[in-house]
Design a protein around this nucleic acid. Sequence first.
DNA 1: CTGTTAGCGCTTTCAC
DNA 2: GTGAAAGCGCTAACAG
Lengths: 291, 291
Amino acid sequence: MKEASRLAVLKAVEELHYRPNVIAQSLLSQSTGCIGVICAQDNINQTTGYLYALEKHLSQHQKHLLLRFANSKTEVLHALDELTCGLCDDVLVIGARFPLNISHENVILVDCVDVDSSNSIQFDHAFAAETACNYLIKQGRRQIAVINPDSCGSVEQILLGYKRALENNFLPFNRNLIFMDSTSSSVALQVLLNNSTTLNFNALLVADEQEAQRIIPQLQAFNKSVPQDIMVFSLAGSLHLPGIPTIPAIEYSMDAMAARIVAWLTEKTKSALGSNVLRGDLIIPDMAGRK
Amino acid sequence: MKEASRLAVLKAVEELHYRPNVIAQSLLSQSTGCIGVICAQDNINQTTGYLYALEKHLSQHQKHLLLRFANSKTEVLHALDELTCGLCDDVLVIGARFPLNISHENVILVDCVDVDSSNSIQFDHAFAAETACNYLIKQGRRQIAVINPDSCGSVEQILLGYKRALENNFLPFNRNLIFMDSTSSSVALQVLLNNSTTLNFNALLVADEQEAQRIIPQLQAFNKSVPQDIMVFSLAGSLHLPGIPTIPAIEYSMDAMAARIVAWLTEKTKSALGSNVLRGDLIIPDMAGRK
DNA sequence: CTGTTAGCGCTTTCAC
DNA sequence: GTGAAAGCGCTAACAG
């Protein structure tokens, strides 16, 4: 081959801005490099962390993030249908609080409820609750109440970790401090406050920071100062927004989660997932920070 | 054709879960239905609103949202490169605060600075500032300060609307109340507060709610109550989070924006954009709400 | 080492 | 009416 013609081709490539068509490549390779991400969590503000971490990791592996939102099983299945016709190599479903019963080869369930499938990544809520209680007990809070909405699906796990921490600290278990099946967290809080003289609770575990921010003003309205009288602990993340004081929380590393997911997607061996539970980090408020 | 064989085929389709391969279809039609969305805003929490509205509208038109994040011109161009090799029919760049100089046929710039291209949708900041000032003046606030970070790129527009409102209300313009080129909004605020006895300002326009939540505690630290002493107004959206009191704001309808974008994408005529500026709604805090 | 060919899964066209 | 064939843009495997 003449060097001249080689250069001529390269020059033409340059000048005509030739870009090999990835669709034609995909047709042959039977893989598009697209990963569908179906966000099913009810609080869409929580998706940002997931998406940012996921996109960062996916693009590093030449993969594309195809985003969908879905709020019910029907919507998830519909989205799944549209994405698995050759468009996406794999699909993630994130944060579904309704049972899905999906056990497809190429679908990974992340932080979903009612998971029987092995293709899933779950947060270790038992570990979170245990850490939370141990922290609170070390802070001198021995009467820890728990308010967890019915829908969270991590009820048993949270209770497990809660009891484990109490046992390890030789503390008695009081059923009246636990509100796991309440439809409204506000009602649960009212019951707690109405019985506060006998219950005498000084710490409160809630499902997430959003919940905490709803509950804290209610506590204050009943002359309970936070965290002096009642220390409120979020079992899933803090918001880190200006104007909102930090509360102690368990925070799950979105980066760690994304790394695991991408490892699974690229290696396609179940062992890549390692354990399929992810443990969160304990975040304690900066005492020197804002009041 | 025999009816029996027709049914046999349909039955086989059903049983084998046959799904026509969209990639093969794309190769022929030269269109994938994928719309690349490059989020370039520094505050990733702002992306959620865009993404949710966009995905909703796109999926209604059988289009897919391919998400990327980019924080610099280099990253945006790199993402653009990867998406325009046949994968995406069109690409949106959202919220870039750095000049891009892109005027590609299939790229729409949304809420980006320094836009010369006609393929863009901008927020009407002049209109926002004018509405804000008119509202504040009607609330009895005639000394309106403005703090706007340099990077926002809407400086002239905001000043335009500000002056227009003042003129229409026969109020004098005071240059000392305007901080448009300050690197730090905190420094600008300090200058304002140091001169507060002579300036006597009773309202403050800030770029967005995030900024407002940074500034409000600083005002309170100087014994300025909000909104009694100083009414803080956000020129771009409010957060609507529990635990954060609502402040008056201009809020842009993500739904309206998404609808316009999808109209442009589907009709592919510039007229579909209508005007390429989008005006925001005035949001006033619910006085009956939290303190 | 270079050049040709077949075929990825589909749709459109053209011939029967 | 139904059925065969061409071709979308690319890369594999093959033949020269």
